[in-house]
Amino acid sequence: MSEGLVHLLQLLVSGVVTGGIYALVAMGFVVVYKATRVINFATGEFMMLGAFFAWTAMSAVQAPFVVALLVAVAASALLGMATERLVLRPLLGQRTISVIMVTIGLAAIFKGLAQIAWSGDYRSYPAIFPRAPIELGPILLPSRQFYPFLIAVGAIALVGLGFRFTRTGVAMRATADDQMAAFGMGIDIRRIFSLSWSLAAMTAAVAGIVVGIIGGISPQLGAIGLRTFPVVILGGLDSIGGALVGGVIIGVLENLAGGYVDPLLDGASLKEVVPFVVLVFTLMVRPYGLFGTREVERL
């Protein structure tokens, strides 16, 4: 196989890996938006806190990784539920823009609290996975990308299947479709809101841990939340499948730009900008995204 082709394949594969992780982050946005029509700009900070929860479990009590993951997910579930109950529910019926501003404020508060609790230092997880890179034919994938990718895909599948096949999933999708009809159907939509926030915080925690394994943990980890926003817009704010497809598209584009264009740019990086070019382009031609519902509000 020619060197150029291997290079391309290498970029595509890392693109898909990046995309899978983007998709998991994007799902945190989608789950909350579907149920409550709120865009949660604190998604990144939920990730950051989840990553720190797991790190604390691993470093303070030497918990095995799987246990730390579960602890972080459980703690985040409670955090999501508490956030909905204490912050979002009193705002029910307020204008969307007010609620969005509150999630931005929430992000700042979470970041500040994390600084206090864990300081601003960079940390990393103790070695979790085998170090040998994974060989996929001619392509080499670093193990600290490969295993997190598997975790991300697993989490996405779990949430997706839950939405599709469980009774609670039916109630959540019914509420997303028509709140009033769902309420009249005997579905307690307040419980659905609470569940959605806690589910979103759980997926965010997994995403945060995955990102933390790859790039280390600090209170700034949440910045990737906003970086993922173009994925959510491209896929459609209310579509889980869209998050998946949008994630992979942007992940691949990013890596192609990084592999082919950035070396020519003398220090500048197109890779960093690509998602936002896609964002602007999407908003221009298809503001509801690839799979979103057409009447979805524009930002």
Partner: peptide
């Protein structure tokens, strides 16, 4: 006490069966 609302208010993105399953929450 169950209301069938004007305009039917079917859950459009749910299948027929899932629409019916949603109503089990009234039980």
């Amino acid at each position: 006490l169950f209301q069938v609302m004007e305009g039917r208010r079917i859950f459009e993105h749910l299948t027929v069966e899932e629409n019916l399953e949603a109503a089990t929450y009234a039980r």
